[in-house]
């Protein structure tokens, strides 16, 4: 995964969130939200607390089914797809509070990302057939490459539970990348990181987009990070999309300013 110049990859497709409404009982979490993540862009989804960012993220990743509206990746409708099929469709995601197996090693955790790219059940694994072992070796090599890209390849044999938070966060992203996504969903990649780590994370996100030419959609609280790396920013407030544009445009948008100041000014958390 050397940083080759970004090429336009034909398999990277537009993610279109199209008129999505999500209701829980009487509460409307998302209301007619539409935006598009263009191929090869870093797209940030921001908004004050409770604006519906997480709900939107969970709709895209298939955990919630929208009340109405569609989510499409290229020509594929993701709305009716079971969430476990998204990995195979090229959607990788990381988690806000690191959802790794603490007792398993870094390598083992990242290898899980290869699940949809590999086959084999109890017997092929249990019998350690030469073919299985060969395939496994190939995937291990790729996983180690990805870990090297994220700078965690010196901890491959360490159980994730023994890692500092910042490192575990990168392992989580490595696992999402192991899916070989064309669209990478990052749920608050800088949450819980200190300033240095946040800056490093920003660089990493740009780098991996440049190297792989994939699209990245991130939900993030850290405005510095968002404005520094995003090509495009969508802003949610009370479940509505109130702005969608370049970082500069969004920052100048009076409605965005009002939304942030109106809910208590400073970034929560």
């Amino acid at each position: 995964m050397t940083a080759a110049p970004a090429e336009i990859r034909e398999d990277v497709r537009t993610l279109a969130v199209d008129d999505v409404t999500l209701r829980f009982g009487g509460i409307t979490a998302l209301s007619e939200v539409s935006f598009a993540v263009r191929p090869g862009t870093v797209h940030a989804l921001i908004g004050p607390n409770g604006a519906g960012k997480s709900s939107c993220f969970n709709v895209i990743s298939g955990l919630y089914r929208p009340t109405s509206g569609r989510v499409r990746l290229g020509d594929t409708d993701l709305t009716g797809t079971s969430p476990h099929r998204l990995a195979a469709l090229g959607v990788g995601r990381s988690f806000q509070n690191i959802a790794l197996s603490p007792h398993s090693t870094v390598r083992d955790n990242v290898l899980l990302g290869r699940h949809a790219l590999t086959r084999g059940g109890f017997f092929s694994g249990g019998l350690r057939l030469p073919r299985t072992v060969r395939t496994e070796r190939r995937h291990v090599a790729r996983v180690e490459e990805i870990c090297a890209f994220l700078g965690v390849d010196d901890r491959l044999d360490v159980p994730v539970g023994a890692l500092p938070y910042g490192v575990a966060k990168r392992v989580d992203i490595a696992r999402a990348l192991a899916v070989e996504p064309t669209l990478l969903l990052l749920d608050e990649p800088a949450a819980g990181l200190n300033a240095t780590e946040t800056a490093e994370m920003g660089v990493t996100i740009r780098d991996l987009r440049d190297a792989l030419g994939i699209s990245v959609l991130l939900v993030e609280h850290d405005m510095g990070l968002v404005m520094g790396i995003a090509d495009r920013v969508s802003v949610l407030d009370f479940g509505r999309l109130i702005a969608d544009g370049s970082p500069a445009e969004v920052q100048a948008d009076p409605e965005v300013i009002r939304a942030y100041l109106g809910t208590g000014g400073e970034e929560p958390e």
């Binding site: 988690f95 290898l111 899980l112 699940h115 084999g120 694994g125 249990g126």
Partner: peptide, 24 residues
Amino acid sequence: RSRIGRAWRAVRDNEAAATAMGVH
């Protein structure tokens, strides 16, 4: 040690994450 074992542990530790990685 193989794919199925990793899927088991993923399900044990976090079902949402397992699902996101393609585990049914």
